[in-house]
Amino acid sequence: MRILLFPSVLIVLLVSLVSARAYEIEQHKIFPASQEVQTLRIISNSDIDIFAPMVEAFQRKYPSVSIDYTVVSSTELMKALYEERQVFDVAISSAMDLQVKLANDGFTKPHSSSVAGLMSDWARWRDHVFAFTQEPASVVYSKSAFEGLEVPTSRQNLISTLRNNPDRFLNKVGTYDIRQSGLGFLFATQDARTSDTFWRLNEVMGSLNAKLYCCSADMISDITTGDLAVAYNVLGSYASARAAKDPDVGILELEDFTTLMLRSAIIPAGAEQPEIAGDFIDHLITASWSEEGADYYPYPKLNHSEVAPNLSLRAIRLGPGLLVYQDNLKRQHFLQEWQNAIIQQ
C-alpha cells in the first residue's frame, strides 16, 4: 500500500549517475518510513521482489526507519565495500567467501546480537557474519526439453545425458559466468573442491557451447522461454518460486552432492547507523532462526542441525577456508582452468 501512496519511490535500473561511484547498481528502491527519522542503507544482492517482505516487516517494528535498498551483484558489492569503501549500514550477500573476506580483512563492524542464541554456531562467524538462509545450488531444467529422456539424478547422469544428446542440448546449457558472479564463483569453487566431476561437467557444457549468466533469475527466465534446456548451479530458492508458476520448470537437487549456500549479512566498517543495522540483522535472525518462523520470511525454512537430513546436502562452512579461492594466484588459476573448460571456441 505504502509503495503506491508515495510517489518518491523510484527504481533505478542499471544506471548510475552518481559521481565517484564505479560499482554497478542493478536496482535501487527507497522504502520510506511513515515518520522518517533515520535511513538505513542496505546494499544487497537479493532481488527487491523477494526481499521486500523482510524490509516491510522491519519497518512495521521500526516505523521511523526509512530503508534505502540497493541491489548489486555480489562482485559489485565487494567492489563497493572493499575497493571504493562506499557507505552502507548493512551488506547482504549470497557470496559467502566475499562476506568472510570482508570480515577477515577488517571491513566489518562486530555486532553482539541479543538473539544470537537462536542461531546455530555454524551460521555466524566472529560476531561479524550472520547467516539467515540456507539455499541449495540446483539444476533447473525445462521438462519439455527432457521429454523422452530420463531426468538425471547425479552429475554423472547429467554428464552422460548431455554428452549423449549433443543435438538437443547444443547452445541450450547455461551456468553462471563465474568471472562476473561472486555466487557462481563460490558454487564453482565448492564444486571443484568436492568432486572432479565438476571439471568433466564443465568440459561437456563447454563442448555444448554453454551460455554464461550473471544471475539465477536470467537463467530461470531463459528456461521458461525455452532458450535454455538446463541450467547448472541455479539458486533453488529463486527457481522454486518460478516453478510454482510454470509447470515446465523442473528443479533437481543432485544426489551425489548439492551445495548449500548461506546468505549472510554484515555491518560494513563504514556504517553510519550501526545500531539500527544491528537491529536489522537481529530482525533477519529472528525471522529466519526462531522456531515459529515468520510468514514474511521468503526463503526455504532453515535446518537447525549442521548435518542435513539428506547426506548429499553439503553446507558451505563460514570460515577462513573460504579465503583460499579469493587468493589472487588461486583465483586466476581457477578462472583460467574454468575458462579453458567452458569456453571452447
Partner: peptide, 30 residues
C-alpha cells in the same frame, strides 16, 4: 596453489582472522 585445508584448518579450531603472504626471493607473490 594454496590448499583449501591450509586455511580451513585454522577455522576449525577458532574463528580468528587469518592472514597469509607468499614471497619468492623477496618478491611479493600473493
Amino acid at each position: 596453489d594454496i590448499p583449501y585445508s591450509a586455511l580451513s584448518m585454522l577455522g576449525n579450531v577458532s574463528d580468528d582472522r587469518v592472514f597469509y603472504r607468499v614471497v619468492a626471493d623477496g618478491k611479493y607473490l600473493t
